[in-house]
Design a binder for these strands. Sequence first.
DNA 1: ATAGTTAACTTAACAGTGTTAACCTTATCA
DNA 2: TGATAAGGTTAACACTGTTAAGTTAACTAT
Lengths: 201, 201
Amino acid sequence: MLTLSDMSLREEILDATKDLLLEYGFSKLSMRKIAGRVNVTATSIYLYFKNKDDLLLALIEESIENLKKALSDAAGESKGVMQQLRSVSMAYINYALEHPREYEIIFMVRPEEMPTYPKEKFRQIRSGYTLLAEVLEKGKEEQQFETDDSLLAAYAMWSQLHGVVSVIINKRLDAKVSTEEFIGQAVDQIIQGFISKKIPA
Amino acid sequence: MLTLSDMSLREEILDATKDLLLEYGFSKLSMRKIAGRVNVTATSIYLYFKNKDDLLLALIEESIENLKKALSDAAGESKGVMQQLRSVSMAYINYALEHPREYEIIFMVRPEEMPTYPKEKFRQIRSGYTLLAEVLEKGKEEQQFETDDSLLAAYAMWSQLHGVVSVIINKRLDAKVSTEEFIGQAVDQIIQGFISKKIPA
DNA sequence: ATAGTTAACTTAACAGTGTTAACCTTATCA
DNA sequence: TGATAAGGTTAACACTGTTAAGTTAACTAT
């Protein structure tokens, strides 16, 4: 039979951290508050995590997998390459806006300020672009658009999507501008960037 | 005659803060360290600034003006609209990469985590887009590209530029990818997003 | 010249932070 | 039964932003 204590303290800590992050944000997160929420002292956390960064990294792990799944689902559902490109883009933006805190942890934490951020984790995040690159490669084969280097183009596209998300999350958008219109315009432009590479700039 | 003490403590504090930010980064910045560098106690800072945020905002003020100048210079130098668009884009990216810490303060600090971040400052930042919007409007008149809403398009373009910068500053770029190639590809795509709105996606 | 005021700074303190060392139970197993 | 180890604790260190109160020097008005 499953009792409450069968949920290991480690997982309780992870859950509490996620909750606090969602409720109060990154800057208000402290080891003592996390510990308090699971009725334990702050030092107990150090029995399961090396330090605060290590704890956050465990959280990132989860989020990355969720994001990847959302993207590959979006790619799978749609038919044509063109539509695939659009729905992956929208899936990316939607995931980020629906999980802004997680997105922030995944993509906005600077390595210098998180000294233990391991290369492995970066690699894991980057592997998500391969999905974009595959879609672009397929479009290239189908001659929908021309791309010299699909991976490079995927990187560029991803950075542009990140920019759109970042501006919204960081609240740098004018109140007068509708978020939906902004997203629509931006995604249009981003996708347009691939089509018809014929006209030289 | 000008003595050393003629440089007001307020400015000395601003300078020291900038130095510390450049040397050790945002996360290592503390009031005591700033004070120490100008041979004063931390509390003295509160005679000139309401709090830490207020101090940072004063720094932002400067940076915003510098960025604006860099952009309008770039717009002025180049001739055709197309070239103008490209050089403003490059000026934006270059400024950000040459002043990453300032850029971070300007664009990456979240309002919730900086409760006193005033709307006025946001407005000030946003006014920079009008320059982009003007260039786009001019291109529209010259029928170089079609844009329904120049301001919206300027926002979209700026968010994409920010994405490119953000990815590089936050070190999310694969070591295998050349930064120059990445920037080149991204700027190409961003500009391409405006040209030939004829083909429907 | 002297008293009053103000500016510029300091000391001491509060409440909070991440993290470590040392200690105390309780359960497991030879 | 006695050793070992797991899972927690308390106390402490060195830091953080910030405030209240005290000091000292300079200026100003009578």
